[in-house]
């Protein structure tokens, strides 16, 4: 056993608020260096608490443990999405657990609504995590940009989508679409000019 759980007695009396700074540092260490020791500290604090929550919610030991496992797996695998400026570690971990619980219950109750927790609370989506936080004015601008993007000519749209949304390099796009690099560059330039023009017209 490489990492044991240091289940210190003191753990059970420390409130989430009181160890937020410490836990934030551990999560950052997981994000940056896959630090198992730091993760073990986060796990030993939160897993038993999540288990209590999950037992109350699911009323069944096996489901409760599944909820704990899914939640803590997300913390381990997606630690880079944690942002201490947006909320405390306990809030972040709670929202992950709440989302998983929502989806588990939907499945158990066989609900037919075509909605999952990420649609309601985009906690773990890199794309939309910020959309929820931006002010109303910025949201409108984002929506307008989405609309402007839709109105680009298809060829320009494909290039912009590959570069700005999929994060590909201009060379990768050129290879993929089998077009010269110069064409990718000129389409990008034209599309950006066009978007800029539309934004100016809008004001």
């Amino acid at each position: 056993m490489l990492v044991g759980i240091p289940l210190e007695q003191s753990n059970s009396v420390v409130k989430p608020k009181d160890c937020a700074g410490e836990m934030s540092e551990y999560i950052v260490a997981v994000a940056e260096g896959r630090c198992k020791r730091s993760f073990a500290r986060v796990f030993s604090y939160f897993a038993p608490r999540l288990r209590s929550y999950a037992l109350k919610q699911m009323g069944n030991e096996a489901l409760a443990m599944e909820l704990v496992q899914d939640t803590m797996s997300n913390v381990w695998q997606k630690a880079h999405l944690f942002n201490a400026e947006k909320g405390s570690p306990s809030t972040w971990i709670f929202t992950i657990a709440r989302n998983i619980r929502f989806d588990m219950l939907r499945k158990l109750q066989n609900r037919k609504e075509d909605i999952c927790s990420d649609d309601l609370w985009p906690v773990l989506c890199e794309q939309t995590a910020d959309a929820n936080e931006t002010s109303l004015d910025e949201q409108i601008t984002l929506e307008q940009i989405g609309f402007m993007f839709e109105s680009l000519p298809i060829k320009q749209k494909a290039v912009i989508e590959a570069i700005y949304i999929d994060g590909k390099s201009q060379q990768e796009v050129a290879d993929e679409l089998s077009i010269p690099l110069g064409t990718v560059k000129s389409r990008t330039r034209l599309a950006l000019q066009r978007l800029k023009g539309m934004l100016q017209d809008h004001d």
Partner: peptide
């Protein structure tokens, strides 16, 4: 919980 931690 110990084995859960190890597997995660």
């Amino acid at each position: 919980l110990d084995s859960m931690l190890a597997s995660i």
